[in-house]
Computed example of a mutant assay.
Amino acid sequence: MAFNEDDANIYKVHSIILQSHSPYFKKKFEEIGWWGRNFYFLFVDYVNLEKFHNISFKIFDVIIKYIYGGKFSLEELENSIIFDLLISSNELELGKLVEHLQYYHVVNHAWLKSNAAQVYRTSYQVQNFKIIQDSCNDIIAKYPNIIFESENFHSLPEDALISILKRDD
């Protein structure tokens, strides 16, 4: 939970709560010898930049709300932010949230279709994005120009291209 406007980059959270929801945090606390202690962990901006360079404070706010409350609203967030949230949730090993956010993007087919090349490339760089990969494969099978005419076509991973070519549709 962020403190106030002056301390917007500082989070005061319970180490035991983070550990119980995220194998990533559990490993990190074990590394520093804090495992099992129920005290506050201050998460400051320099720690964020050093350890969580891909996670913005806006995204971390959503993750903390999810960890503490089990739910949050995606309606207030842009789809690109939600995709970044998916990547960050995967990095922090929040499996249920990763699955939920993948299904969110599949249901939000229009955004996924308009960003298929970027999303497809990212989904093959991250092992846990099978739902997104399958959905992108379906989109690309119907609209192959999305990927083959993309500026990022040359940067697609080999296994992504093989996956497209193996499809019989």
Rank of each mutant, 00 (worst) to 15 (best):
L85M: 10
R121V: 05
N108H: 15
S150H: 09
L161F: 11
I164S: 01
S15V: 06
R167Q: 15
F129I: 09
S163Y: 00
V13Q: 05
K113H: 10
I162D: 03
L101K: 02
K26A: 09
M1W: 04
F57M: 06
D159G: 00
Y11A: 03
I17G: 03
E78Q: 13
E5Y: 09
Y143V: 04
F3P: 00
H21D: 00
S73T: 13
I64P: 01
K12Y: 02
G33T: 10
Q102N: 06
R167K: 15
L77A: 06
A116G: 03
I82P: 02
L86C: 07
S88T: 06
I59N: 07
I16V: 14
S155N: 10
E78W: 03
G33F: 12
I81Q: 05
S80G: 00
L18D: 02
E99H: 08
S163M: 01
S73D: 14
L97N: 03
E93C: 09
K113R: 15
I55P: 04
E151M: 06
A116K: 02
G69N: 15
S150L: 08
G95F: 07
I10K: 12
E31C: 08
K96R: 07
S150P: 04
A141K: 14
L42Y: 15
E91V: 07
I81P: 00
P144C: 08
F39D: 13
N9K: 13
F83W: 13
N108G: 05
I131L: 14
F83D: 01
I82D: 01
A2M: 11
Q133W: 03
W35A: 08
G95R: 10
S88V: 03
Q19M: 12
P23N: 06
N4G: 05
K58N: 12
S20H: 09
I16W: 05
E75W: 00
V62D: 02
E151F: 09
H154Y: 07
R167Y: 02
S89E: 04
H154D: 14
S88M: 08
D61S: 08
I67E: 04
E5M: 06
V13I: 15
D84N: 15
M1A: 14
I147W: 11
D6A: 13
F129E: 05
S114E: 15
S56L: 10
S73W: 01
Y120Q: 04
I139R: 07
Y40Q: 07
E93V: 11
K113Y: 04
L18E: 04
A110Q: 15
F72W: 10
H100E: 11
D6V: 10
K26W: 00
G95S: 13
D61W: 11
